[in-house]
Simulated assay, not measured.
Amino acid sequence: MVVIRHARQNEACLLVEIGLRAWEKAIAGIGDVGSVRGPAERAFGDFLVGHWLSVLLIEDDRRICGWAAREGLDDTISDLWIDPVAQGRGFGAALLAEVEKQIAIDGFDVASAKTHAQNASAVAFFQRARYHVSWLSTAYSQKLDRDVEFIGLAKRLALEDAADEL
């Protein structure tokens, strides 16, 4: 049975591993994974230790398949990671829908996210969910230790759907 729930503090290590596996797949061809895995692992760990309360996760038969976060509890989805072995089974779409619902309930009418512009699968994922490109920029990525093109995506939310949940 698929369940979406809030993360627990003691699950941070498992969430780091899921995030790392998904991140490594996402940056394949963008950077040297081996040389930046350590800093990425520390970044995931620091984030999850400090922000675990902002994390939703998705389980299938009590196995965690992915997680998403709104670091600032605002309209921005800061993280959405599905374990590569669980990708393609609808977990990302289900988790995204739940995060969007929470964003709308919290009073925001637009959900936004960003990813590496070369992460074609993430861009396609968000576009299938009716996100549109709202900006493109180049910025230094500490995890990759180089400049990377980022793409911002946004979606207007149906506020009446969120109101039905209240």
Rank of each mutant, 00 (worst) to 15 (best):
M1S: 11
M1V: 02
M1I: 02
V2R: 11
I4D: 00
I4K: 08
I4V: 13
R5D: 05
H6A: 02
H6R: 15
A7K: 10
R8N: 15
R8T: 00
N10H: 09
N10G: 07
L14S: 13
L14W: 06
L15S: 08
V16P: 13
R21G: 12
R21K: 15
R21C: 10
A22R: 06
E24H: 07
K25D: 11
I27Q: 03
G29H: 09
G29D: 09
I30Q: 12
G31H: 01
G31F: 06
G34A: 15
S35D: 13
S35G: 06
G38I: 15
G38D: 12
G38S: 15
P39V: 08
A40P: 03
E41G: 08
G45L: 15
D46P: 08
L48N: 06
V49T: 09
H51M: 00
W52S: 10
S54Y: 03
V55E: 07
L57Q: 13
E59W: 04
E59L: 07
E59C: 14
R63K: 05
I64H: 01
C65Y: 07
W67R: 08
W67D: 00
E71Y: 01
E71F: 06
G72W: 03
L73G: 05
D74A: 13
D74L: 01
D74P: 14
D75S: 09
I77C: 02
I77H: 00
D79V: 10
A86T: 05
Q87E: 01
Q87T: 02
G88M: 04
G90Q: 05
G90R: 05
F91A: 12
G92D: 00
G92F: 07
A93D: 05
A94I: 04
E98T: 11
V99Y: 03
E100V: 03
K101D: 00
Q102L: 07
I103Y: 10
I105D: 00
D106P: 02
D109T: 09
D109M: 11
S112R: 15
S112H: 12
A113K: 10
A113N: 04
K114H: 14
K114R: 15
K114S: 15
K114N: 14
T115S: 15
T115C: 13
T115D: 07
T115V: 06
T115K: 11
Q118P: 02
A120D: 08
A120V: 09
S121A: 15
V123H: 01
F125Q: 02
Q127S: 06
Q127K: 14
A129I: 05
R130L: 07
H132D: 05
V133T: 09
V133Y: 02
L136D: 12
S137D: 15
S137I: 05
S137Q: 11
T138M: 14
Y140V: 00
Q142N: 07
Q142V: 15
R146G: 04
R146D: 04
G152Y: 08
L153D: 03
L153S: 02
L153T: 04
A158T: 03
D161C: 09
A163Q: 06
A163R: 12
A163W: 05
D164W: 12
E165P: 01
E165I: 01
L166A: 01
